[in-house]
Simulated assay, not measured.
Amino acid sequence: MFEKLVNGLPDQIALLDARWNIIASNDAWTDYCAAHGFEVFQVGHNYLEELERLNEEKREAARATDAVIAAIKEFEQGRPSMYRHVYSGPRDGQETQIRIASMEIGGRKYFTVTRIDVTELVQLRRLRQGFSTSLIHTQEEERRRMGREIHDSTMQQLSALGLAVSQLKRTRLPGESLALVDDIEELLFDAQRELRSIAYLAHPPQLSRMDLSEAVRTLVEGFGRRAGLITSFEVEGETDVQWQNARVAIYRVLQEALSNVHRHAHATQLSVRLIGRKSMIHLIVADNGRGMPVDVSPGVGLLGMRARLAELGGRLIVRKLSPGTAVIGSVQRT
């Protein structure tokens, strides 16, 4: 009955008993095993024993055996109910997903093993990641260009204006006019500080030249000096991130979070923590500002941070503090 149900499916499917003996398979499974020299995985053979034998022989076609054997051991201890693993081979460029699921029928335990050709899906995912990387690179270049323009042009003009105001103060002005000049000078100082902060966030130290924790520390401390904030930075656990897209995502989330603090929070203190937990890296940005209004709708910044992390399988959480706000970004680091 099992064979009749699954014979028309393109995926390769086998049914195993509780001892991992292959008791049934569909045509796709049988044809694949015959075509690639895996007759040992036909009905009547023990799936686990044949995997272990292939693993000892270290055959190139058995690249997935280590991971699958480990998963089977987990099944025997009653932990997972579903297992998935994608591996390359046996043909160049081919990507295969192997999936194991447990089930119970009439009080007896069985397993299904399914092999699916996911080559096109993996290639599409790589294309999407490549496009995402290219887009991030373009955005970085545009940010740096804007930062340079603000620094080289607008800031220089404001500096010249500041000199003119200083000269004006040294002239003999009536009391009311002098007070007005003082107000102009204070507004000019605020504008310079605002632009320094914006320019620094748009053109921060390049991540490619530092490890993630060093880059985060430099960005936080530099931003604090320019924005007039008291800042702190802490590292907890292993924060080395091998996945370049994850490093960039965490760094860009930090930039956007700092920008939100600067524009909306009216904070005086800022704390940032970078935490490594097993396969995850977490960024926490907390301020003592006025917090987010209850009825506020998410802006482009929050939506962009959430989308950037979600694309990599991560998540963004915003929590209300008393006082202030905490932004928590999490993503896998490998």
Rank of each mutant, 00 (worst) to 15 (best):
A191V: 07
S208C: 08
S208K: 11
S177T: 14
R209Y: 06
L188R: 00
L188Y: 00
I184S: 02
L195G: 00
R196N: 12
L173H: 05
P204R: 11
T171A: 09
Q192C: 05
S208T: 12
L180G: 01
L195Q: 03
E185P: 00
E194Y: 07
F189Y: 11
E194V: 00
E176N: 05
S197C: 07
Q206E: 15
L180W: 03
E194W: 03
P174L: 00
S197N: 01
M210W: 11
L195S: 00
P204I: 10
E186A: 14
P205T: 10
L180T: 04
R193W: 06
I198E: 06
R193L: 12
L173Y: 02
E186F: 10
F189E: 11
L187H: 13
D211R: 09
A191G: 07
L187N: 14
A179N: 06
H203S: 15
E176M: 03
S177W: 05
P204F: 11
A179G: 03
Y200K: 04
L188P: 00
Y200N: 01
Q206K: 12
L195R: 00
R196S: 15
D183F: 06
S208I: 13
A191E: 07
Q192H: 07
E176R: 02
E194D: 14
L173Q: 09
E185L: 05
S197E: 01
E176I: 03
Q192R: 15
A191M: 11
Q206H: 13
D183A: 12
I184Y: 09
M210S: 13
Q206L: 11
H203Y: 15
D211M: 08
S208Y: 05
P174V: 02
A191H: 04
Y200P: 01
T171V: 08
L188Q: 07
V181I: 15
L201E: 00
L188H: 14
D182V: 02
I184N: 02
F189G: 10
D182Y: 09
D183T: 14
R193C: 11
D190G: 05
V181E: 10
S177D: 14
A179L: 04
A179Q: 10
S208E: 13
A202H: 10
I184E: 06
L188G: 09
A199E: 06
E194T: 03
M210I: 04
V181M: 11
R193S: 14
E186K: 15
T171H: 07
Q206G: 12
Y200E: 08
E176F: 02
M210D: 12
I198C: 00
D183I: 10
I198V: 15
L180N: 07
S177E: 13
S177R: 07
E194F: 06
D190V: 04
D183E: 14
P205W: 10
A202Y: 11
V181F: 02
L173M: 08
P205A: 09
L201A: 03
V181S: 05
I198K: 02
